[in-house]
């Protein structure tokens, strides 16, 4: 699988689009940018991220992304399944994340179940993410 991690997107008003490959590329780009606010802008206000192992939304979610992405983790995700049902989609990816902790690098591998929503403005954004680690430990654990 060749990724185009140069996929252009509007950083001030991102749209994950209805193309599951572009979704994945924008998601990885934003994650790997190290910019918590940029990554968080892929989520809706009420969206839930379980990345930390807790269900975070709103300000708490942004605070977590700011802190975690500042450590410059690098993710690589491979799309395994997607279903689109009107204005909502279920996406599954397998991921590898290389974390840079105070004790050096550590790798987490697992799969993630994501729900995306198309808003009234037509933009597709993250509604729910649920990463499950199969090897290694998630960032906060």
């Amino acid at each position: 699988m060749i990724y185009n991690l140069e996929t252009d997107f509007d950083r001030s008003n991102p749209d994950l689009t209805d193309d599951q490959y572009i979704q994945n590329e924008i998601f990885m780009q934003a994650f790997n940018s190290g910019e918590g606010a940029l990554f968080d802008s892929l989520y809706r206000e009420d969206s839930i991220s379980n990345f930390s192992g807790k269900q975070l939304t709103g300000e708490a979610r942004l605070a977590f992304f700011n802190e975690y992405l500042a450590t410059k983790p690098v993710s690589l995700a491979t799309l395994t399944k997607w279903y689109v049902a009107g204005d909502v989609a279920l996406i599954k990816v397998e991921y590898i994340i290389d974390n840079q902790g105070p004790d050096g690098r550590s790798r987490v591998e697992g799969y993630c179940t994501d729900v995306l929503r198309r808003g009234e403005d037509g933009r597709w954004l993250m509604a729910i993410d649920r990463p499950v680690a199969t090897t290694g430990r998630p960032p906060s654990q």
Partner: peptide, 10 residues
């Protein structure tokens, strides 16, 4: 497990 936003749930 359940994840429930304003109008979408997993």
């Amino acid at each position: 497990e359940s994840f429930v936003t304003d109008d979408t749930a997993l």
